[in-house]
Design a protein around this nucleic acid. Sequence first.
DNA 1: CCGCGGATGGGAACCATTGTCAAATTGATG
DNA 2: CATCAATTTGACAATGGTTCCCATCCGCGG
Lengths: 129, 129
Amino acid sequence: MVTTPRNTRQRRAVAAILEDLDGFASAQEIHDLLRHRGESVGLSTVYRNLQALSDSAEIDALRNDDGETLYRQCSTGHHHHLVCRACGRTVEVAGPTVERWADAIAAEHGFVDVAHTLEIFGTCGDCTP
Amino acid sequence: MVTTPRNTRQRRAVAAILEDLDGFASAQEIHDLLRHRGESVGLSTVYRNLQALSDSAEIDALRNDDGETLYRQCSTGHHHHLVCRACGRTVEVAGPTVERWADAIAAEHGFVDVAHTLEIFGTCGDCTP
DNA sequence: CCGCGGATGGGAACCATTGTCAAATTGATG
DNA sequence: CATCAATTTGACAATGGTTCCCATCCGCGG
């Protein structure tokens, strides 16, 4: 039986933060932001909700170089990210060609259940004086 | 002043393992393999040497879904990986089109100093009964 | 308004990785 | 071959992000 998630204050608070954020943020950053808003939520709960949202594909997750998982609310549908190293500003990009290329390569080598990760990092105009 | 790395038994042992390995392996796996060979090397040392090799671009490193860093000796030059989730078997793939696409997208949005990560994961033929 | 079961939270537990530092090893030199 | 400085090693502690645990809380259907 499928369990329906409950509409708790904490879940709403986490969702609200994600609405307002522009770029990617770590669970801990989100936890701090909530605290500053006075909408304090337990760290475990922040992690749980972010993971749940990520699992249900409502938000995107990626790992940065430091091994932290970053979250962001994105448009639906498959896409990739162009992320500014300095300020975290993110541009969503679609790359139909890349998707097809990746799948073709994998099939060619007899791989199934194929997924891929693709992120582009750079320094955005605002951060390059 | 640039310090020249020394030729120690441990460094040689780690390099030798990487020669023999086909796919990506974690630091801990490599540590275990060394132990089984009777060429025991301290875990810290394995980490240090892998990092050094990775820094000098002699081996490739990537992070898997569990957040572990995996290492593998690869051909030189820019390339990406098609990795089997189950056994770690790896196929190196070049994607000139993708490189150009990524750079173009980034330039289009005013990003400079651009880099990208791209890995394809799947289950290889041998691991799909 | 009740009661059930999912949700919460605070701290402990995990675990890959990095730091610490005395002791061992290397490579150059005499 | 002996000496010596500098690098490297390794056992263990420490770190830090994330997950687990579990008593308590509370959303929600009846």
